[in-house]
Structures are given as C-alpha cells and as structure tokens.
C-alpha cells in the first residue's frame, strides 16, 4: 500500500473534471482562471448604439488594439507586470497578467465608419452605431 498525500484541492479538481464529463458543456468552474488574464467585458445597447466596455485596469492605452472586421469585434492587448519581479517580496498576488484577445460577433449589423473608442479610468469604452436596417426591397415579378 502506498501513502498518498492528502490534497483537498486536488480532490475538488477531480470532482470538477467528473462534472465536466457528466455535463459536457456544464459552465466551467475554472480552477486556473486566475493564472491567465482575461478582461471582463460588458456589452449593452440602446436604440441606436451598441456599447462594449472592457475592464482593463493598469493597461496603457498603447497596449490595446481594437479591430472590427465583418461584424466581429476583437479586443486584444497585453497587461504587463509593472516592474521587474526581482527583489520584491510578494505577500499577495491576485491580479493576473499576460496577453489576451477576445472576439465578439455583434448581435446586429453596425456601421463600421461610426465606431468610437475611449479609454478612461481603466475601462475601454467602445461605442458602435447600429447600421440602418436594410429596407426590404419589394420587387414584383412579372409573369410572362
């Protein structure tokens, strides 16, 4: 018989894996979520616009990139650790670092010429104007 070290968290992880297997697309209880950086994003709308707000505290404006292509909005960037880690004695590290890229298919057509982005207090605010709905063209087809 071998002795196995008791690791309560390991046990939980195993449980999570079993749940994943059981439910397939069960919303992931992700154990290593904190290890990779993943900005939180809110998308809201009003009659005319779609607003995308990304929480990117501590990232300089220069390190962010927004691309709108074929109604797919991609936000990418990199969050760098402030300074060198050396001779810093960490007591707590809850904030994640690294590069990220997130893409969203927008729910309605937007006008790619009417997009504006602002960066304030660590939130990237993108406003996209909805494209005017295409008026369905009626066409009578003549029966010959």
């Amino acid at each position: 018989m071998t002795l196995v070290r008791f690791e309560p968290l390991k046990e939980l992880e195993g449980f999570n894996n079993r749940m994943q297997k059981l439910f397939g697309d069960f919303p992931a209880i992700n154990f290593d979520m904190n290890l990779t950086y993943h900005p939180k994003i809110d998308i809201s709308e009003d009659e005319k616009n779609i607003f995308v707000d990304a929480e990117v505290p501590g990232i300089a404006k220069e390190n962010l990139k927004i691309v709108l292509e074929d109604n797919v909005l991609t936000i990418s960037g990199e969050k760098k650790q402030e300074e060198e880690k050396k001779d810093k004695n960490f007591h707590r590290t809850e904030r994640a670092y690294g590069s990220f890229s997130r893409s969203f298919t927008l729910p309605v057509e937007v006008d790619s010429n009417k997009v504006s982005a602002a960066f304030e207090n660590g939130i990237l605010k993108i406003a996209l104007e909805k494209a005017a709905p295409k008026t369905a063209k009626e066409k009578n087809i003549e029966i010959k």
Binding site: K40, I41, D42, I43, S44, E45, D46
Partner: peptide, 9 residues
C-alpha cells in the same frame, strides 16, 4: 439600468 447583452463584470 443598462440594457445588457453580455454582463461579465
């Protein structure tokens, strides 16, 4: 009061 499509925060 925002009309959210996606709300992660």
């Amino acid at each position: 009061d925002k009309r959210y499509i996606l709300n992660e925060s």
